[in-house]
Nucleic acid binder design. Structure first.
Lengths: 242, 242
DNA sequence: CTTAATTGCGTCTGAAGGACACAGTAAACA
DNA sequence: TGTTTACTGTGTCCTTCAGACGCAATTAAG
């Protein structure tokens, strides 16, 4: 059940199967009829659906409909929904992360965070996928690799570098989540928050005050501020070690 | 449909309805039979289920079964699943956040982050709820209020304080997500990551190296490191303004 | 040209959220 | 005290989704 990847076993997939799919490991030799579709075609269709109707609209039936086939035909290529999500995420992260510029670690790290932000903003639904437990794909690992490269020869341990990247990614994703999404009608945290705060202003004076001047720069300022704080914090650590 | 809260209208709830539920706004006068249950009882039952079988196990039927009734009876108290989630989250955040100690803003902010971490770790499923778009409840706002209080009289704008809190919360939640959960069998990012990295070590040299020395302190170190970096970053900003 | 592996896909099942109707109940009012 | 009437309790039905299973069609290997 773990060896034949486009095999019949539908569910209960192990990590190995997901990995095989993510790396597009080729299947040895096929005898029967030639496959009409491919994993890439399915992922592309699913991506299109997610892009214009949101992640919830990505059901097996919807993907199949877009490809002009039926739901069960897809299970020959993708074991199940979980695996499709993993593929979808790695595809959403793009082809390759931009290489770190040679202008020092601060600029490199800031630039990396900006790239992550741009990608996440372009496909907000990828954030949802990225934040649930999943097996990382080749592209996601490449992003990590690029992020680690940004540190140059700073005197940090590997764990510290990873934690710093996690910090940045966490911040970026929090921001993207709060972005008002046109598609989903409920969205927008701040919109619903306004009336609530107004009604209970007495109980949360600091919060009301803080949100009062939170308007101007908004999203982009929040990104810059957070990244700058982290970079400054790392710089402080590096300074006290040097 | 928006006025009578325990009313018959089942779905398509607006923000107002959620708010009314979260603040346990009392219903004016009841004529018919007395309600057998209460919102609190339902939330308590749902919380118990989430605690020992995970968030996915919290279905209307499961909650009803635990209360000894049927699924549809619950819809008299809670309009739908979304509203139940909101109630569940606010309940999971605990009764009241601990007050900031008077030992300076660094200690206060660090302590606040630690408290958030402790709460999130106690109920890992609350992280899932907290990170999807939702209307904040009274307890969540109280946490924000406490977090803002921790800054004391630092020369930061309200937006900057909020961004800092978001940064800390984002980090804490990332960490809790990566915590191996006993209940859900798939979990553990790092466990699945090992074999993958081993197989493609050549392509991701930095990542492999970073994970190699990431073992020792682990989770708690990551928390401390991240919070310390943010605090240092804020300190740097405050210093250059003073 | 036979054989066997492999694909395409229709049908069924189970679980989930939710709509709706109707019966039972108890407070308000005459 | 009796009647009205709003409100609760809940059984039944519908829709959507993921997935299991089986069988017919296809085509490369021998």
């Amino acid at each position: 059940m773990s060896a034949d990847h486009p095999g019949a076993g539908t569910s209960a997939t192990s990590t190995d199967d997901v990995v095989a799919l993510l790396w597009r490991r080729a299947t040895p030799a096929r005898r029967g009829p030639k496959p009409r579709f491919s994993v890439d075609a399915i992922v592309a269709a699913a991506t299109e659906i997610a892009d214009d109707r949101g992640l919830d609209a990505v059901t097996m039936q919807a993907v199949a409909a877009r490809l002009g086939t039926t739901k069960m035909a897809l299970y020959r290529y993708v074991p199940g929904r979980v695996e499709l999500d993993a593929l979808l995420l790695d595809a959403a992260l793009g082809a390759a992360p931009p290489a770190a510029t040679g202008a020092g670690w601060r600029a490199a790290l800031t630039g990396w965070a900006g790239s992550v932000h741009a990608r996440a903003l372009a496909r907000p639904w990828s954030v949802e996928l990225a934040q649930r437990p999943h097996v990382p794909g080749p592209v996601e690992l490449a992003w990590f690799e690029a992020g680690l490269a940004a540190f140059g020869d700073l005197p940090l341990t590997g764990a510290e570098k990873l934690d710093t990247l996690a910090l940045l990614v966490g911040h970026v994703m929090s921001l993207v989540r709060q972005q008002p999404r046109g598609a989903s009608p409920e969205g927008d945290l701040a919109a619903g928050l306004g009336p609530v705060l107004a009604e209970h202003a007495d109980d949360y004076p600091l919060t009301v005050a803080a949100f009062a001047d939170a308007e101007p720069g908004g999203h982009d300022d929040a990104l810059r501020f957070g990244v700058a704080r982290v970079v400054a914090g790392v710089a402080a650590l590096a300074a006290e070690r040097a």
